[in-house]
């Protein structure tokens, strides 16, 4: 931190001196500025910037809040207000793999409640907690009760680092976390092999990781209607049925 940063300045206008525990490295500061510059008004960069803070620091840290505040010329109270509003921003570190079980009504009824309970038991941790690392584990797992993740046709749904893990059962979910902890390569049902939470946060912040081309075009449920239409030769009016020549996807 610049020792001469103004005490009258916005983020740092305070009589209390702060601790420097988690210094944000210069590369990250540069990337934070880069995000702010994507927008006509730099404050728009705040949400992705906070994602990047999580990628760099493993959670939203006071230093992350202050750095964003300084770049955006906001107070740290304003940044805190934003950082505490959104559920994806974590104040405590999460695991390498953050597992969300959808417990919104439809998933809950279809088995999400059961899955969550079994998983919580299995991991020995509750909502928004990280399971203890066991001997031999190469990765940690944390657990969260999440709301509807727009995958209801794949209920019950779990997310790992915000990748879809469709059509779960209590057993599949337990296997999933065991594989993750054991360091096995796990693939999303509709995406690539799972990356760590920090890597995922970096992508969400807008720094693509070249995995876009992995995974299928769509999962099976997404194609149910389209496939029926193909079978039955149904089309929108006047749209040539040449569609039939096309493949059936994955």
């Amino acid at each position: 931190m610049n020792p001469t940063e103004p005490s009258e300045g916005r983020a740092s206008d305070r009589g209390v001196q702060k601790h420097v525990l988690n210094r944000i490295d210069d590369k990250t500061v540069g990337e934070l500025r880069e995000i702010a510059a994507r927008y006509p008004h730099k404050r728009s960069g705040l949400l992705p910037m906070l994602h990047l803070v999580q990628s760099a620091q493993g959670r939203i840290t006071p230093e992350g809040i202050e750095t964003c505040a300084e770049i955006l010329e906001l107070t740290s109270a304003e940044v805190s207000g934003v950082a505490t509003f959104y559920t994806m921003y974590k104040r405590r570190p999460v695991g390498d793999f953050h597992v969300g079980v959808c417990v919104n009504t439809l998933c809950a009824v279809m088995g999400g409640d059961e899955i969550y309970d079994r998983l919580s038991e299995h991991l020995g941790c509750g909502n928004d907690e990280t399971a203890e690392r066991r001997e031999g584990d190469t990765a940690t797992v944390s657990l969260e009760r999440i709301e509807c993740n727009a995958a209801c046709d794949y209920a019950p749904v779990a997310m790992v680092n915000w990748e879809f893990m469709d059509n779960q059962t209590p057993q599949s979910a337990k296997d999933l976390v065991d594989d993750l902890r054991a360091g096995k390569e796990v693939h999303s049902t509709r995406g690539p092999r799972l990356v760590t939470w920090r890597e995922a946060e970096r992508v969400i912040a807008g720094f693509n990781d070249d995995l876009a081309n992995e995974g299928p075009s769509a999962g099976p449920a997404s194609l149910v209607g389209r496939n029926i239409a193909r079978e039955r030769g149904w089309t929108a009016p006047g749209v040539p049925a040449s569609n039939e020549q096309k493949g059936e996807g994955e």
Binding site: L223, G225, A229, G249
Partner: peptide
């Protein structure tokens, strides 16, 4: 027709994205 795939029509295509 009962179903009229327009937006969903190419979802199953190879590397449709």
């Amino acid at each position: 027709d009962m179903l009229t795939p327009v937006l969903t029509d190419n979802w199953g295509d190879e590397r449709s994205w």
